[in-house]
Design a protein around this nucleic acid. Structure first.
Length: 442
RNA sequence: GGCCCUAUCGUCUAGCCUGGUCUAGGACACAAGCUUUUCAAGCUUGGUACCCGGGUUCAAAUCCCGGUGGGGCCA
């Protein structure tokens, strides 16, 4: 699809730095980004920090970091609304002069005055790229307030002033803002601006179908949470893109380039989407499996800081990661999964039992394992497998030999196979762990 | 409460515009089986959905109307 729109596309993403960057915002940013990359326009970033009380520079930094981490690049300078008060005040003055707004005295509070917009009433109909025609009787809104006083313009006036000044052609935002659209259109037109084309995205929802909120989900609504949990940005981007959008075929895995190639607002869903972390886990696993070992090592390092001192000297780290790569969903799981490679595992002797084997039987098999391991010349996975499997076959049920061995080595119900583990631990440590297991059965 | 948006498996969705090929497809999750012990990964198989009612039509998941459910915004 070539650019459908005669005018060059300009969109904006205007987060408020009043809290940690939200995944819902991330998705809105992503859709804006995809839309402009696809249509060859500009995607502007605006920091909407008009609320001086709640806006904090740390949050602003968090927004920038997060967008950067996701790989979303914006065009041009960042606009900060806190630096544009004069512009808003000027627009307020214009509206007042044109008699499109007036100062009104509030009943309550002695000399409280606000500025209200003179609502012309009537029906506002606007085209929404996702929802089609949306109509609203704006008369019902009354003369809404646009400034707290002559020096303090409020949100809608600020947004509209910025949109006009930056030549925004398309506004792509969450559905929660759909009902403020008519009043913004009123303001744009009162200021002589041209109304942009709108696209209201379906909301991201909790399991109970309400808007994803910090109150209910806590940490899990902030992008940092996913970063800290060890999700890959490309997995998150892929997942977020598929929440409310779908190219119409059966593919699930998309790189950013593929998303840009396929994206279109016409294919965006109308109803809200539940954020299902299980699917994200699966997708992240898919991306982890695609990584090269070198990349994996680098990505994993921050998550295994506790072992880090040791790892610098341990050339086996990448071997261990290779074993965990197929079963890893996110990096935060790593320490717990690989701990046993670095320290003697703790476990109860019951874990050593395979299908109701007696202690005596387990002990016998562990002794056999010990002998085999002791006699092994070549302590590689391949050789160990060869010599152990021969003996395991003799047992009839291979698990009789292999299960106690694996538990002795790992101390875990689930782990990589015993030969993989032994090859990494080495002969001495492997024998030591088998010895400890035997002692547990005494 | 008012206004607005919305409705396909538990979840994300394809299909709806241009009605028949839909005994509704895919993915996640779940279950079973296979895969040289466990857990993964992989492969195979399975169950589960067109919100309800009416209308239009030879024919409706698809078009129209009315309910109901869900959500958002404002109060």
């Amino acid at each position: 699809m070539i650019n459908l729109f005669k005018k060059k596309v300009v969109v904006r993403f205007p987060p408020s730095p009043t809290g940690p960057f939200h995944v819902g915002s991330a998705r809105t940013a992503l859709f804006n980004f995809l839309f402009t990359r696809k249509n060859g326009g500009k995607c502007l970033l605006r920091i909407e920090d008009t609320d001086k009380e709640r806006s904090k520079s740390e949050f602003e930094k968090n927004i920038l970091d997060s967008l950067n981490w996701l790989g979303l690049k914006f065009d041009g300078d960042i606009l900060k609304s806190s630096e544009r008060t004069e512009v808003y005040k000027n627009n307020l003055k214009i509206l007042l002069e044109k008699n499109k707004a007036y100062i009104s005295k509030e009943e309550e509070g002695a000399n409280k005055e606000v500025v209200r917009f003179r609502n012309p009433g009537g029906n506002i109909i606007f085209q929404d790229l996702i929802r089609g025609e949306v109509a609203m009787d704006v008369g019902k809104l009354g003369d809404f307030i646009i400034a707290r006083n002559i020096n303090e313009p409020l949100y809608h006036l600020a947004v509209v002033s910025d949109d006009i000044d930056t030549g925004i052609t398309h506004i792509i935002r969450g559905e929660d803002l759909i009902s403020s659209t008519p009043r913004q259109i009123l303001l744009i037109e009162a200021l002589g601006g041209k109304r942009p084309i709108y696209a209201h995205l379906p909301l991201l929802l909790d399991e109970d179908r309400s808007k994803l909120s910090k109150r209910k989900q806590g940490e899990a609504v902030s992008l940092d949470f996913y970063r800290k949990q060890g999700y890959l940005p490309e997995a998150l981007v892929n997942f977020l893109a598929l929440l409310g959008w779908n190219p119409g075929d059966e593919r699930e895995i998309f790189s950013m380039e593929e998303l840009i190639k396929e994206f279109s607002l016409e294919k965006v869903q109308k109803s809200g989407a539940i954020f299902d972390i299980k699917k994200l886990d699966w997708m992240n696993g898919e991306y982890i499996r695609k990584k090269s070992l070198e990349e994996l090592v680098e990505l994993a390092k921050p998550f295994v800081k506790d072992f880090f001192q040791f790892l610098i000297f341990n050339f086996q780290f990448s071997n261990i990661l290779k074993l965990e790569q197929p079963r890893l969903k996110k990096f935060s799981e790593l320490p717990e999964k690989i701990e046993f490679f670095f320290k003697t595992p703790e476990y109860g002797k019951d874990l050593l039992s395979w299908k109701g084997m007696s202690d005596e039987e387990i002990k016998n098999y562990l002794e056999i394992s010990k002998e085999i391991a002791k006699s092994a010349e070549d302590f590689t996975k391949e050789n160990l497998e060869k010599i152990f499997m021969k003996k395991a076959e003799e047992a009839g049920d291979r698990g009789k030999l292999l299960w106690p061995l694996r538990v002795a080595l790992s101390g875990r119900k689930a782990s990589p196979g015993p030969f993989d583990i032994m090859a990494i631990l080495g002969k001495e440590e492997s024998l030591e762990r088998i010895k400890i297991a035997v002692e547990k059965l005494m």
